[in-house]
Each structure stands twice: as structure tokens, then as C-alpha cells.
């Protein structure tokens, strides 16, 4: 008998004692219930919910729900506490390993607190991994793109300039919306919200507070070819 055998006996004995006084013993568990759906709102059969005790979701899940039936309903009974939870559908039926083509999941794990004796309802939408990529559009719907060139007085593109937009024509502060420095093409992209703005460009940052933005624009959607002429020579 080696050292590890005695360690194991001790662990078992300790666990028996802990089992006797376990917080679960005689106390209510928590339950998480809901449905697993696809992006069309249809139930996904054969999916599961994984719950982790920490946000380190690289290893096997601490708790796994039943596999959903045709109705997509899952139930997960677990001790009360905080978990990080996600929905997963594995085409192969495996329980381990990175997701592969054909699998679906609900994205980043969602932190949830589940309380003793309570049933928490939560649905999960699992996404086909390929479709998700083609639909990615991360621009806020509240913002529009204004594009164009920054030019000198001879119509030549100005590098190391930037576009700016503000709610008033006269700057008393650093403009609200700024583009990055232009390159040799003089092209800029400015992200702005809907509404009336005043547009201009500068060659130095920060620009002086008494700078005057000449171009008034009414932004109702994306705007192209909004060239800005700076009355300076290109050096």
C-alpha cells in the first residue's frame, strides 16, 4: 500500500463527514429551466446547457443539463450559487472537445445567480457557427459613416489630417467626433449619429478652441464623397 492509498482513505472519510453536514443535505437545490432555440426561434433537439462554477470554461462543465427533446426544453438542477452558463449543441453527441463544424452554441457564457428553492427561467439561442460570421455587422445602428477626402486648396489629398464633427460650429472644446489621421490618399471615415452636425478638418491635434467648423450637414444615413478642403498647402 502506498502513500496515495492512505490519502485516498482519508479523503473518503473526510468526504463522508462533509456529506453528513453537506449544505445540500436537507436543503433545497436550485433549478434552471428553459428552452434551447435556434436563430429562427425553433426548438433545438439534442442540445444541452453547460454550467461552470467559474468563468474559466476551458475544461469540462461542472453541471450539464439533460439533452433536449423535440420541444427544446432543458432542466438543470444544481446547488445554489453563481454560475457561468451557455447552451451547446454538438452534432456528434460528444461531451468534450472544441466545437467543430456543424455544432452550435450560444456565445459567451452568461453569469447567473441561482437561488435555493427557486426555479430560474432562461432560454438560450444557439447559433450555427458559419451563419453567425456572415451576418456579423458590428456597427452600432445609432451611428452612420461619413467618408470622403481631406484636400488642400489645390485639390490635392492631405496626409496627416483628420476630420472632425461637432454639435456647434464653434469649438469650445475638443470636437465630439474625430477621424483617424489620414494617409497619402487623404481619405477619412467619421462615425457620427443622426442629426445636424458641423464638419471640418484639421492638421494639428488638439485643434484650437476658437476653430470654426464651416460645413453644416444633416446626417440621416451614411454619406459618401464628403470632401473637406483645408485652405493650407501640403508640406
Amino acid at each position: 500500500m502506498n502513500y496515495s492509498f492512505f490519502v485516498r482513505i482519508f479523503c473518503i472519510a473526510l468526504a463522508c463527514f462533509i456529506g453528513w453536514i453537506s449544505p445540500l443535505h436537507g436543503k433545497e437545490s436550485a433549478a434552471l429551466k428553459g428552452r434551447i432555440l435556434d436563430t429562427q426561434g425553433q426548438a433545438v433537439q439534442g442540445a444541452e446547457v453547460y454550467a461552470y462554477r467559474s468563468n474559466k470554461v476551458k475544461g469540462p462543465a461542472d453541471y450539464i443539463s439533460n439533452r433536449t427533446g423535440a420541444d427544446g426544453i432543458f432542466t438543470l438542477v444544481l446547488p445554489p450559487g453563481k454560475y457561468w452558463v451557455l447552451g451547446v449543441f454538438r452534432k456528434s453527441g460528444a461531451k468534450f472537445g472544441p466545437l467543430i463544424t456543424g455544432d452550435k452554441h450560444s456565445g459567451e457564457p452568461i453569469p447567473m445567480n441561482v437561488k435555493a428553492g427557486q426555479e430560474t427561467e432562461r432560454n438560450f439561442t444557439v447559433m450555427d457557427l458559419r451563419e453567425a460570421a456572415r451576418q456579423i455587422d458590428k456597427k452600432s445602428e445609432e451611428l452612420f459613416k461619413i467618408t470622403g477626402k481631406i484636400l488642400d486648396k489645390h485639390g490635392q489629398p492631405l496626409p496627416m489630417a483628420y476630420a472632425m464633427a461637432h454639435l456647434q460650429p464653434q469649438l469650445g472644446t475638443i470636437p465630439r467626433y474625430l477621424s483617424r489621421w489620414t494617409d497619402d490618399t487623404g481619405r477619412y471615415i467619421l462615425y457620427v449619429p443622426r442629426g445636424t452636425l458641423f464638419l471640418g478638418a484639421a492638421l494639428t491635434f488638439p485643434v484650437k478652441n476658437d476653430y470654426f467648423l464651416k460645413n453644416r450637414i444633416d446626417v440621416q444615413g451614411d454619406m459618401q464623397e464628403m470632401d473637406i478642403i483645408v485652405m493650407l498647402e501640403k508640406k
Binding site: V57, K58, G59, P60, G97, P98, L99
Partner: peptide, 23 residues
């Protein structure tokens, strides 16, 4: 006499201080 059993990773995440997505 130690046997270390390394479980394959569930995820393709790599935390910055590590090198591989595997365990």
C-alpha cells in the same frame, strides 16, 4: 509513481499567459 491525466480542452480560448488552446 505519479500519473498525471491531462483532459483535453473544451474550448479554443487561449488566455494570454498561455501558449496553446489545448490544456
Amino acid at each position: 509513481h505519479t500519473v498525471v491525466r491531462v483532459w483535453p480542452s473544451q474550448s479554443t480560448k487561449i488566455d494570454p499567459e498561455f501558449i496553446s488552446h489545448r490544456t
